[in-house]
Amino acid sequence: MTRPVVEVHGLTRRFHGPERPPVLDRIDLTIHRGEFVALLGRSGSGKTTLLRTLAGLDPVTEGRATVPERRAVVFQEPRLLPWKKVWKNVALGLPGSAAEARRKAEAALAEVELTHRAEAWPLTLSGGEAQRTGLARALVREPELLLLDEPFAALDALTRLRMQSLVGELVQAHRPAVLLVTHDVEEALLLADRALVLAGGHLVEDIPIGLPRPRRRADPAFEALRLRLLGALGVDEDGHDAAARPAFGADSRQAA
Score class of each variant (00 low, 15 high):
Leu109Val: 12
Gly127Ala: 07
Val181Cys: 08
Gln164Arg: 14
Arg132Pro: 00
Pro122Thr: 02
Arg102Ser: 11
Leu170Tyr: 08
Thr124Glu: 08
Glu106Ser: 09
Glu187Asn: 01
Leu189Ala: 08
Pro151Tyr: 03
Ala173Thr: 10
Arg117Gln: 10
Glu169Cys: 02
Arg137Gly: 12
Asp149Cys: 05
Ala120Phe: 09
Thr159Asp: 08
Leu147Met: 07
Pro176His: 03
Gly134Phe: 08
Ala136Tyr: 06
Ala110Leu: 12
Gln164Glu: 14
Ala177Tyr: 06
Ala188Lys: 04
Leu190Tyr: 11
Arg141Ala: 15
Val171Gly: 03
Leu94Arg: 02
Arg117Gly: 01
Leu191Pro: 08
Gly96Val: 04
Leu135Arg: 09
Ser165Asp: 13
Trp121Met: 11
Ala136Phe: 07
Ser97Arg: 07
Thr133Tyr: 10
Arg132Glu: 01
Leu123Ala: 03
Leu94Pro: 01
Glu100Tyr: 05
Ala105Gly: 13
Leu109Phe: 12
Ala118Gly: 08
Val167Gly: 11
Val185Glu: 10
Glu144Gly: 11
Ser97Lys: 04
Ala118Trp: 04
Lys104Met: 09
Glu129Ile: 01
Arg132Lys: 02
Ala188Asp: 07
Leu145Gln: 11
Ser126Lys: 02
Pro176Tyr: 06
Arg103Pro: 06
Glu106Gln: 14
Gly128Pro: 00
Glu186Val: 05
Gln164Asn: 13
Leu189Asn: 09
Arg160Thr: 06
Glu119Pro: 01
Glu129Val: 02
Ala110Pro: 07
Ala108Lys: 15
Trp121Pro: 00
Glu100Ser: 10
Val171Ala: 07
Leu146Gln: 10
Gly93Ser: 04
Arg194Thr: 10
Leu191Asp: 09
Leu189Phe: 09
Ser97Ile: 01
Thr133Trp: 09
Asp156Ser: 00
Leu92Trp: 05
Ala173Arg: 15
Pro143Asp: 15
Arg102Tyr: 04
Glu129Lys: 05
Arg194Gly: 01
Ala136Gly: 04
Arg175His: 11
Glu111Gln: 15
Glu144Asn: 11
Pro151Ala: 08
His174Cys: 07
Glu106Ala: 09
Thr115Gly: 14
Glu106Asp: 15
Leu155Val: 01
Ala138Met: 11
Ser165Ala: 13
Arg137Pro: 08
Val171Arg: 00
Ala138Lys: 09
Thr133Val: 15
Ala157Lys: 07
His183Thr: 06
Leu125Phe: 00
Arg194Cys: 07
Glu100Ile: 03
Leu189Val: 06
Ala101Met: 08
Gln172Tyr: 04
Ser97Ala: 05
Glu111Leu: 14
Glu169Asn: 11
Met163Glu: 12
Leu166Ala: 12
Leu135Ser: 12
Ala120Cys: 06
Arg132Ala: 03
Asp193Arg: 01
Ala130Glu: 07
Ala188Cys: 06
Leu148Thr: 07
Glu111Ala: 14
Thr182Lys: 06
Leu158Gln: 13
Asp149Ile: 05
Glu187Ser: 06
Thr159Glu: 11
Ala98Phe: 00
Leu94Asp: 03
Gly127Ile: 00
Arg162Asn: 14
Ala99Gly: 07
Ser165Val: 09
Leu135Asp: 09
Pro143Asn: 13
Gly128Val: 00
Arg141Lys: 15
Thr115Leu: 12
Ala130Arg: 11
Leu125Val: 00
Leu145Thr: 09
Ala105Gln: 13
Leu190Cys: 06
Ala136Ile: 04
Leu158Pro: 00
Leu155Pro: 01
Ala107Arg: 14
Asp149Lys: 05
Leu123Pro: 00
Ala188His: 05
Ala136Arg: 02
Glu119His: 10
Arg117Thr: 02
Asp156Gly: 04
